[in-house]
Amino acid sequence: MKVGRVTLSDRAHAGVYEDRSGPEIERMVEEIFAEPIEFVRILLPDEEDAIVEALRRLADREECALALTTGGTGPAPRDVTPEATRRVLQKELPGFGEIMRSRSFARVPTAILSRATAGIRGRCLIVNLPGRPSAVRDCLELLGPAIAECLDHIRGFRPRLRERK
């Protein structure tokens, strides 16, 4: 299964700090799915047009089944991931963002500031995740079954889920 992961961070892109959320996406995807995974890795600053181009590339040219973004979903002026995502989606699936906010709110009351969304472009499911590694972990644990079901609908392929302990 081919999975794109896009880290969106001005500071990580500039080398101010290490990207920890992108590697956490990989760790969690491999923990959730029993399929062999091929990752396409992208690290970008918070620039809407660059995000749009990256998501189009992952869905259209790389033919990823799943594209996961991390970062840029908050209310700050440079947080533009949801806007960029909506520009490439053919069908929006707002339930992904709704359940992530609902689940996260129980632990972090500021989770309601997230504007994360998800949807489909062609045969690719695109999901915006939070920027913190712990939040990436919490959200992906929750979304695994829905991701598998969605991929079955759009690709005719249901990735096997690993047994959860």
Rank of each mutant, 00 (worst) to 15 (best):
G71N: 09
P145V: 00
L55S: 12
P133C: 04
S21H: 06
G72S: 13
R56I: 05
E98S: 03
R61T: 10
G131D: 01
S104R: 00
L140I: 06
R115E: 11
A14W: 03
E18R: 13
E83R: 05
S102K: 02
G22C: 06
S104I: 07
P82R: 03
R27D: 01
R155E: 14
A65V: 04
E53Y: 11
C150Q: 14
A111S: 07
L129K: 00
L161S: 13
T69A: 05
R41V: 02
I154L: 14
G144H: 09
R107K: 09
V6W: 06
V80M: 05
G15F: 00
R86G: 00
C150H: 14
L68H: 01
H153D: 15
A14V: 03
L151T: 14
I42Q: 15
L125F: 08
A84G: 14
V6D: 13
K91Y: 12
R162P: 04
P94I: 12
S21N: 05
A14F: 01
D10P: 01
L125K: 07
R57C: 09
H13P: 00
L143Q: 06
L68C: 08
I99P: 01
P82S: 01
V108S: 09
P159T: 10
P82Q: 07
V127L: 08
T69M: 12
E163H: 10
G144F: 08
E83T: 07
P75L: 07
V40S: 15
L89D: 06
P45E: 13
V136W: 03
L140D: 05
T69G: 13
Y17C: 01
R103D: 15
G22V: 03
I25S: 06
L125G: 11
V3G: 15
R155G: 14
G156I: 15
D49T: 13
G15Q: 01
P109T: 00
E53W: 12
R56H: 12
K165R: 08
L43C: 01
F105I: 04
Y17S: 03
T85Q: 07
P82I: 02
P133M: 04
I32A: 10
R56C: 10
L113C: 01
I32P: 00
T110W: 00
G119Q: 08
R56Q: 11
P45C: 11
E48N: 15
F105E: 10
T110N: 05
P130N: 02
R87G: 09
R162Q: 09
G131F: 02
C150W: 14
V127D: 04
I99V: 11
I147R: 14
D138H: 04
E47A: 11
F157A: 15
R107V: 02
C150S: 15
T69K: 12
F105L: 09
M28Q: 11
R107Y: 07
V136G: 00
L113V: 02
E18P: 05
L89N: 03
A118R: 06
P82T: 04
E83I: 04
L129Q: 00
K165C: 03
A148C: 07
A12R: 09
G4M: 13
L44Y: 11
S9F: 00
S21P: 08
A146M: 11
R61D: 15
P77F: 00
L142S: 04
P109R: 00
G22E: 08
R5M: 10
G22Y: 03
L161P: 06
G74Y: 05
P77L: 02
A65D: 13
